[in-house]
Design a protein around this nucleic acid. Structure first.
Length: 712
RNA sequence: GCGGGUGUGGCGGAAUGGUAGACGCGACAGACUCAAAAUCUGUUUUCGCAAGAAGUGUCGGUUCGAGUCCGACCACCCGUACCA
């Protein structure tokens, strides 16, 4: 369906290729020791791959971010930056001394206002012109090959020198046909952005500046700081686009104007003179979904000599992977599996071959929520069910999915709408997003005789204040807390925690310590402390259970107030995802209850409320005590308690008294006492009189129910 | 470099512009015990015997009042990158 909707295409693209990928992946030890993989293993290769046209939706995906008001600002900003909208000019140079078929060179720039500072043009090593030239010129072929070998890691890119090679081709300046610029192949120009070709303005781009300096190209300033004069530059002058500057070599707009004004004026002027047109460009690239891996869903197309690329018939879907494969030799196992690979063309019936690329696993996570609305349907979704159940009210996930998964899902929902699988109301699949933190732990590392790192599980470690050792006394390096990961062995198996303390303890502890959007450090002592607390609750329940039915105590009223407050605070905490605050309120209420000496009825009522409030965190203990205290049915199905609003407000309040902003005394007054009355009491207060020491009061501020500030 | 975030006790962390440090951990003291563990009761921001003083990364500002708002800076964390 997506092919029919024109959302899928195939193209040759340069990708990072790890020639030993297949072999290393067969050996878990090597995959896991991620640090072992050196970038030298990765090379850049051109492969024909499958793509989704997510870039067709760049503008739409960007604009719709504003409507996701229940998403964190952070995630929306990350997506906006990732989509990366820019406004600029696309135009073509007329070439000179270029091979046949290359009489124009198309470039894109966001700074057309600097055209008069142009000193060279540069193309990507992957640009069609570069590819043409490399076939005829060994020096160019060698240089292009060198560029492709370059490291692809962040560090390699950052430290890479700006390298270029003059192609001998020249272009004419669009405003002056007697002005020619050399065309270089440059290693820093990317084929994937814009047109894969640029013009260089060294005076106002640091990258171009370095390049021009290296190859002795002219550096011609187009503008100077407002009030400044033209001087020789030691680095590129790149002020904010919102800053006004004075143009020495402008061609449109005022002499003094901001970069933004100049860019707009330059686009208008260029369009008027037939030099290119203003275009909006996006950084977002199409989504490459091809993987040369065994796992992943096969891409359901067939290659037929007669018919070309043909989608597999719907009745034959899904195309399933073969099980009899070997992973211990390099290469794609699907490629060398003839009985799976060979098939018949769905269109003409002639012998044909299956596509051996599999799909990126992000494919599956991009629409599972939609499938969940009709899990048994014979079609991918059922429109009526999808219309009923969509959207997801609250999505919870790690921040690591801020860009890829969450952007792909937004695209996929739109694509599924285009193919008739989702209603238009579901194009933004997640109404609200919450990004939770991770559970972290220290990492324990030793080194083997080959100098390779060996990691150890927390339960193999003896920890002391001074350091850590293995049980045999070997000293262990302790690396500060990091996301739990099997490869680093800094994991605590949930089964061990549950075995030692029970599931309730595990749940309570993980929620109690930190707000959920932050990481939480797993500590053994924290889990033990939780276990002790839950044991205290159980002991308290036993004590209350044994109270005589006719016990008459004191403070029934206070207990009712404390109960109302606990209901209020715990409920608010849970509703705002502030589980740590909800649990703090539960600790407080438990302490109050264990100290209370109220009558039997109110005590039993209070502990039933306590366990109901605890039940989301500790369901097992809650049910046990619920039954024990005579609760009807299941605690989990009993109605959530409601706080009596009248009990939430106290009759009297304690007001601190500040003198010049420093707390000096406090008074207790009826809640609804008039401000003028409070003033009198405050000024008569013994401590206040002492601190004032007879100084005249200049001003007195009474904030009812809050504070009193006396200014002298 | 760019974008985002975070800085509060020994630690995790609370505080609609209104008593900074709730709650928990840890530590210390006491009770119980022949003893220890467990349990219970206290204390626990720093300096000070106290009265008191200082204190939320740094410097400034707004305000009767700032952890909170504004400006500049510092440190750390996350993301991302030769984007023309």
């Amino acid at each position: 369906d997506m092919m029919a909707a024109g959302l899928v295409y195939r193209k040759a693209a340069v990708v990072n290729w790890d020639p030993v990928d297949m072999t290393v992946l067969a050996n878990e030890q090597v995959i896991d020791g991620r640090g072992w993989r050196s970038n030298a293993l990765v090379e850049r290769r051109e492969l024909t791959q499958w793509f989704f046209r997510i870039s067709d939706y760049s503008g739409e995906l960007l604009e719709a971010l504003d409507r996701l008001t229940n998403w964190p600002e952070k995630v929306r900003v990350m997506q906006a930056n990732w989509i990366g909208k820019s406004r600029g000019l696309q135009f073509s140079f007329t070439t000179h001394d270029a091979p046949a078929g290359f009489d124009r060179l198309e470039v894109y720039t966001t700074r057309p206002d600097t055209l008069m500072g142009a000193s060279f043009a540069a193309i990507s090593p992957d640009h069609p012109l570069a590819k043409h030239l490399e076939r005829h010129d060994p020096a160019i072929a060698a240089f292009v090959a060198e560029c492709r070998r370059g490291g692809t890691s962040a560090e390699a890119m950052e430290t890479a020198e700006k390298l270029g090679l003059d192609t001998g081709v020249r272009v004419l300046h669009p405003f002056d046909n007697s002005w020619t610029l050399p065309v270089y192949i440059a290693n820093f120009v990317l084929m994937d952005f814009g047109t894969g070709a640029i013009f260089g303005c060294p005076a106002h781009d640091q990258r171009d500046f370095e390049f021009a300096t290296r190859y002795a190209l002219p550096i011609l300033p187009v503008f100077v700081a407002e009030g400044g004069e033209e001087t020789a530059l030691t680095e590129a002058y790149v002020p904010m686009k919102s800053e006004p500057v004075r143009y020495l070599r402008g061609f449109a707009g005022a002499e003094v104007q901001t970069g933004e004004q100049a860019v707009a004026a330059a686009i208008t002027a260029c369009e008027a003179h037939g030099v290119g047109q203003g275009v909006t460009n996006y950084r977002l690239r199409d989504w490459g979904i091809s993987r040369q891996r065994y796992w992943g869903c096969p891409i359901p197309v067939v290659h037929c000599d007669a018919c070309g690329i043909v989608p597999e018939n719907k009745e034959n879907l899904p195309v399933e992977l073969p099980y009899d494969v070997t992973l211990d030799i390099p290469g794609n196992p699907l490629d060398r599996h003839p009985t799976w690979r060979n098939c018949l063309c769905p269109k003409c019936g002639a012998p044909a071959r299956r596509e051996t690329d599999t799909m990126d696993t992000f494919m599956d996570s991009s629409w599972y929520y939609a499938r969940f609305t009709a899990p048994h349907a014979k079609t991918p979704t059922d429109l009526a069910e999808a219309a009923y159940w969509m959207n997801v009210d609250q999505y919870i996930g790690g921040i690591e999915h801020a860009i890829l998964h969450l952007l792909y899902s937004r695209f996929f929902a739109r694509a599924m709408n285009a193919t008739g699988h989702l209603p238009a109301s579901a194009i933004e699949p997640f109404n609200a997003l919450f990004t939770q933190g991770m559970v972290t732990h220290e990492i324990y590392k030793t080194t083997d005789h080959n100098g390779r790192p060996v990691y150890h599980l927390p339960e193999e470690i003896l920890r002391s204040d001074t350091g850590a050792t293995l049980k045999d006394g070997t000293k262990v390096d302790v690396i500060p807390s990091a996301k739990m990961s099997k490869s680093k062995k800094n994991v605590v198996d949930p089964m061990n925690i549950i075995g030692a303390f029970g599931a309730d303890t595990a749940r309570w502890f993980v929620m109690s310590d930190s707000p959920p959007e932050r990481d939480v450090e797993w500590t053994a002592s924290g889990a033990e402390a939780t276990f002790k607390h839950l044991s205290r609750v159980w002991a308290l329940s036993s004590r209350i259970g044994e109270m005589p039915a006719d016990h008459a105590g004191l403070g029934d009223d206070d207990l009712a107030r404390a109960t109302a407050r606990a209901i209020h605070e715990v409920t608010r905490g849970i509703e705002t995802f502030a589980f740590n605050k909800a649990i703090a309120a539960l600790y407080g209420f438990t302490n109050t209850l264990s100290r209370a000496n109220a009558s039997t009825g109110p005590m039993k009522e209070a502990i039933r409320t306590l366990v109901k409030l605890m039940s989301p965190m500790t369901p097992h203990l809650a049910e046990e005590i619920w039954t024990h205290q005579g609760g009807a049915g299941l605690c989990a199905t009993a109605p959530w308690p409601l706080a009596d609003a009248a009990l939430l407000v106290d009759d009297s309040v304690t007001l601190p008294i500040q003198i010049n902003g420093k707390r000096r005394a406090e008074i207790n007054v009826p809640r609804d006492m008039a401000a003028s009355e409070i003033e009198k009491i405050a000024l008569a207060n013994e401590d206040v009189v002492k601190f004032l020491a007879g100084q005249p009061v200049r001003k007195i501020i009474v904030v009812p129910g809050r504070i009193i500030n006396v200014v002298v």
